[in-house]
Design a protein around this nucleic acid. Structure first.
Lengths: 229, 229
DNA sequence: GAGTGGTCTAGACCACTCG
DNA sequence: GAGTGGTCTAGACCACTCA
């Protein structure tokens, strides 16, 4: 007696082998239930799993179709920078460079969703791997959302780790880009001449209120972001 | 009467609000079923959805716990380059630069998983947005896996689109990095002086056999990769 | 209107794994 | 051994949406 996972797997094979081509209409749940000698509920569970994974699209009355893939989804797992460094067997260290309340520039104001006269917490710090600069962190924290940040010095704990503890489940948007290094990046990251930076920008929300916006710059020579399905 | 989605949503609120902290043991399915006035099956469906999304971890006998988040997952949707350009309202065009059978350099041999004397199909081409270079594609195709590629000229269809048609459901690994431009990138992408490139490398398999390896270079000034949970 | 998927209940048995 | 999650069946009703 097949489980819904067995059924899912069998159906997926038919899709991957090309037996069921993109755009094709699949048999109804009732028909498949008969074929597999199981219940419609079980087939439904399998088909929903395939739909969750983006292989098929389902509509009532219209039935289930193999998706036409125009995109490829890649999942990136971004670790806390300390973990990332330690996991690779290198020694992690941390240095706070600046910390203060400031009125952010207009672009950051917009990201944080705050008024032009409101101050936010601005932090610049460095993360090292085996004593060499690995990541320059330039962060703005919205004090309307996380007022506790005011009483934290960030001298021993990085804002990265502090925020994960205080605000564990937020949403985020990332932008990845390459850029020529600006003078501060050039100096703090100790870059080779003409070495560009790999930049991750992250904005984090809690229920539509922006918690923080951060720019993470890395020497291009020692940073790559890897993905596997 | 709550649906499993209602239950999922209620439980997720408790996690996000901090009522249920990371590491905490959740009530058993039976207890929650009683609380919500539903069946254990329905609660199970909700909890499995939370587990799929990475919010909780479940083990028989040990129960269900809120996950301690040390990572953040980001989903990147990579479109076919033509779609990406047209979707943004720009005009797409394509130019084949080179195409030929060659013995690939050692690094590519390893990626493709072929012997040192085996030839592969090497293609270099350019994708334009509104007539300006957008992406330089440098691709190796494993002819053991996709022999049909030999009889395709790739003069009117890009290898990108051709492969999606021929091999719709493959697995992939991506590497994102920044780099100083090499001479060919500098010339073909018409880069400003000292402008770095944003590089995506993708390896694609079909059942453990490597189909293709491609390096996609973009002018840093006009390329960003965006993600949203 | 009719066919398809979406979901629930009630009861059951199984599989894992902790103590 | 016992408690927890994993899954199935059988029957039912509902909700959407296509023709």
């Amino acid at each position: 007696m097949p489980t819904y996972k067995d059924i899912r797997s069998t159906l997926l094979d038919r899709i991957k082998s090309g037996e069921w081509q993109p755009g094709m209409l699949l048999p109804s749940e009732a028909e498949l239930a008969e074929e597999f000698g199981s219940t419609r509920v079980t087939v439904n569970r399998a088909m929903q799993a395939l739909a969750d994974d983006g292989f098929v699209e389902r509509r009532r009355k219209a039935g289930t179709r193999v998706v036409r893939r125009l995109t490829r989804d890649a999942l990136i797992r971004i670790r806390i920078v300390r973990d990332e460094i330690e996991q690779s067997g290198r020694r992690y260290s941390y240095l706070l460079i600046r910390r203060g309340r400031e009125r952010p520039p207009p672009g950051i104001q917009a990201e944080l969703g705050i008024g032009s006269k409101t101050e936010a917490l601005h932090i610049v710090c460095l993360h090292f791997a085996d004593g060499r600069p690995f990541q320059l962190e330039n962060r703005w924290i919205n004090l309307d959302v996380v007022p506790q940040a005011q009483s934290e010095t960030f001298e021993t704990i990085s804002p990265n780790e502090w925020l994960v503890q205080k605000v564990p489940y937020s949403n985020a948007e990332h932008v990845f880009r390459a850029a020529a290094a600006d003078p501060e990046e050039q100096q703090q990251l100790d870059l080779a001449r003409d070495e560009p930076v790999f930049v991750i920008e992250r904005t984090t929300w809690l229920d539509d209120r922006t918690v923080t916006h951060v720019t993470l710059s890395h020497p291009a020579g020692n940073f790559r972001l890897v993905t596997r399905d």
